[in-house]
Design a binder for these strands. Sequence first.
DNA 1: ATAACATTTGACACATTGTGTCAATCAGAG
DNA 2: CTCTGATTGACACAATGTGTCAAATGTTAT
Lengths: 163, 163
Amino acid sequence: MEPEHLARIAELEQKCRQRGIYLTIHRRMLLEVLLRRDDHPTADQIWDAVRQTHPEFSRRSVYRVLDKLAELSLIRRVHHPGAAVRYDAKIQRHHHLVCVHCNRITDFESARLDRIGLPEGTPRGYEISDFSVQLIGVCPACRELRQPDTSSPTSNSEGETKS
Amino acid sequence: MEPEHLARIAELEQKCRQRGIYLTIHRRMLLEVLLRRDDHPTADQIWDAVRQTHPEFSRRSVYRVLDKLAELSLIRRVHHPGAAVRYDAKIQRHHHLVCVHCNRITDFESARLDRIGLPEGTPRGYEISDFSVQLIGVCPACRELRQPDTSSPTSNSEGETKS
DNA sequence: ATAACATTTGACACATTGTGTCAATCAGAG
DNA sequence: CTCTGATTGACACAATGTGTCAAATGTTAT
């Protein structure tokens, strides 16, 4: 396993000890799975992947463990326009392009956006650890489709993300 | 009706004509309903409200019409951490505080964030119309619930600003 | 005003996504 | 190894979103 991933696993161990919660094989395994992926899988997609080798893994637990990992800031929830919440182990700061037409989200890196800093009047009591910018607009594919002629709106609920 | 709302209705009419799609009473009515609300209702919440006076309004249509209005940029989808997508007629730029612990989202206004401007290397072909900043952290309520000795910063990435 | 025609809606069924509950199991401490 | 409380698996269920197609509606041309 890559050293970077090992460090994240170690971080999981540390946080579990620190907070007095159990370091279960489920938590370790799901974190490893997410670290190896660079897409933004949904909980059910992760379940499908994990079941291949570990059929005893229950769907309910996948949902619970992902929630817990997100709570520990080891992974991040990506709030996708489709119904499904998606998860991402890429904690590094990055931003999103959101197409209002097809609902697709694309990752977007920008050193300048990374450096905007946090606002002056940070709200009372909030402990901000990071931020992410959503750029809202129309993606190239949808711009082409949107010619004067009536275009069928391919409202894409699947909305796969590209990294 | 307020002049501001009338203008938005006119915008709907214009966009429908422009794109050759029908201006139905459903589309006009749902836009009006959303303009009058200042929360972020889900599709089903809107359906519940509309059914009171118009029982013939089908749930299916509410979902379809909201999608269409969002596609026309007349309303905006708010990607709430819960399962339900929420809709907002407040197109004015605003930002969000996201609690990684309880998943709650709070609106956040910041003149400084409003002015960060769009990134230099706007991705090929994208037509960006607006942006929104998500501030990720822990809300006051959740901070209290957590053990006081867990003061170590969460993210292993570069130094984060604290409020 | 009316007819023609493509778009949109309503109804129904269904798929997808997420959660409440509780007994059984497991991780960690002694 | 034993004990204890946290965690999981199973089940049912709630909540949310979508595919389909006949019927209704809006737009345009007549």
